[in-house]
Write a protein that binds this DNA or RNA. Structure first.
Lengths: 273, 273
DNA sequence: CTCCCTATTTACTCCGACATATTCCGCCAG
DNA sequence: CTGGCGGAATATGTCGGAGTAAATAGGGAG
């Protein structure tokens, strides 16, 4: 049965609804813009990439799997081949898939995936996150952030200190129980990474920030935060301001360790529930 | 009444020849560096992405710059808009550019770039590499690799040890003066990262490996390698095999430090030349 | 002077056809 | 029967054009 026989004008209707139907019951923070639905500012191929990306990250497509052919899949998604292809190019750029003529588009091995890409990270946390991967991310933080704090203590200038101080005071104002407070927390860590004046570490900041953002949703979901994190953060700032690299590294290490424990217990609680 | 007249077959001619040879005298002389030219296995949109990516990374387009419109630029490059657009999607996925209707496609700020993406890294090293960025990458190595070695010492299994051992013996066979030896060196570091059993660190392995690969070209270019790296590498292996995390971390730290010194002196020599 | 509204520009999407590169399979030789 | 080889099938890649949606700029009304 031919789905489209003649190029009549009736295709004006487009296929918006097909991308919007996958409404997840999650939707905790409505202010977030990461819904798979295609709104203004969110292009169609971006929505397709999001859909396929989350499907791959969630294991719906396993490495080695071959996706249906372009024409078939594009038709199934109710989009044109161009839009589908552009989405595939995005996934290819992030190392998730690879396409070859005649052979089709196949999902690559997990170690080829660009897991630190912020968008891939968002896809990974769109569904139920992999606990092992969360642990890995915290280990990465535990390695990178203290070192960044040490460098920051050696290289920070006045603007860096002001950025960190501003983030700290914002944290004091809002506390971690609301979105503004969490944004300030992320700003704090971002400012420290930035003060290291190392481009490679700054790039990791985006990834780490995303990881922090997604994991804090867990902490918030499970229970209230018993600990007051301000003093720990202030210690990091003081050490950086004084130029004491060793102390900054130590303080930041404590910070990450505490965050790890909080998240670990939150995850534990979520699992045992 | 259909909206398009008739698909006439008169446009058979295509424009293959214009993109391949007859285009301009720039065919061979100008940019043969890493073959942005399009060979078998290399897709056209990939070549375009490479061309634009290197142009951006080399500073030919500055952050904030607006690229010419789709039609104009695609025509200038002698490719169809589809190919051009797919290339732009790749750059967008890597955070290099962003497109909006009416506003055009503009180059994003440097801190939005996904500098740890292997392909972006390759583009960054396609031209004359930024010395500051090379230093940043070595600092990242100095942070990540010792920590990875420590984890590897705690978590390695027999397969991991065998992989490291194999890479080590391959290094012994070939030495670092040829390609096979450098590949073995990369395999060694990759195997250690892999033995950490941490997905996030493994992803960095690809980036770090690429960085090592590109920087070794400098070392090789400037002069012979005076140091025999085998004992240092062997020390790392021994510590990992014995499960001594502290020693593994130490040994790996020494390794990275030596590589940094070698590269630094090589760069110095290249600059003073 | 501000605000809304329109007009234009630009990217976005769709379409159908042609080109190219692999893979698959049958053929032939050893 | 096994192995390499060449043609046909097929899916991705590329093309050019038409039409849609969105965002900015500029003009008009309050």
């Amino acid at each position: 049965m031919t789905q489209r026989q003649f190029p009549d004008k009736s295709r004006k209707g487009k296929a918006m609804e097909s991308a919007a139907d996958s409404a997840a019951p999650d939707s905790v923070a409505a202010e977030e813009r990461d819904s798979p639905a295609r709104g203004p500012g969110r292009r169609l191929h971006g929505a397709i990439a999001h859909k396929l990306g989350t499907a791959i990250l969630s294991g719906q497509y396993q490495p080695g799997d071959i996706l249906s052919g372009e024409v078939a899949f594009a038709e199934e998604l109710k989009v044109s081949r161009s839009a589908y292809r552009e989405a595939i190019q995005v996934l290819t750029a992030k190392g998730l898939v690879a396409s070859r003529p005649k052979a089709g588009t196949r999902v690559l091995e997990r170690d080829r995936w660009n897991l630190l890409d912020p968008e891939v990270l968002a896809w990974a946390f769109a569904g139920e996150p992999d606990l092992q991967f969360v642990r890995d991310l915290f280990e990465l933080r535990a390695v990178v952030e203290p070192a960044a704090a040490r460098l920051a203590a050696q290289r920070r200038d006045k603007a860096d200190l002001k950025a960190i101080r501003d983030a700290l005071s914002a944290m004091r104002r809002h506390t971690l129980t609301n979105d503004a407070g969490r944004a300030a927390d992320r700003d704090f860590h971002d400012a420290v990474l930035r003060a290291s004046h190392n481009a490679a570490l700054m790039v990791l900041s985006a990834s780490i920030g995303a990881a922090v953002h997604w994991t804090t949703r867990f902490k918030q979901r499970s229970r209230e935060l018993p600990r007051n994190p301000i003093p720990d953060h202030a210690r990091v700032y003081d050490a950086i301001a004084e130029g004491d690299g060793e102390a900054a590294s130590q303080a930041m290490g404590v910070l990450v360790q505490l965050a790890l424990e909080d998240t670990a217990s939150a995850i534990e609680a979520a699992v045992n529930r």
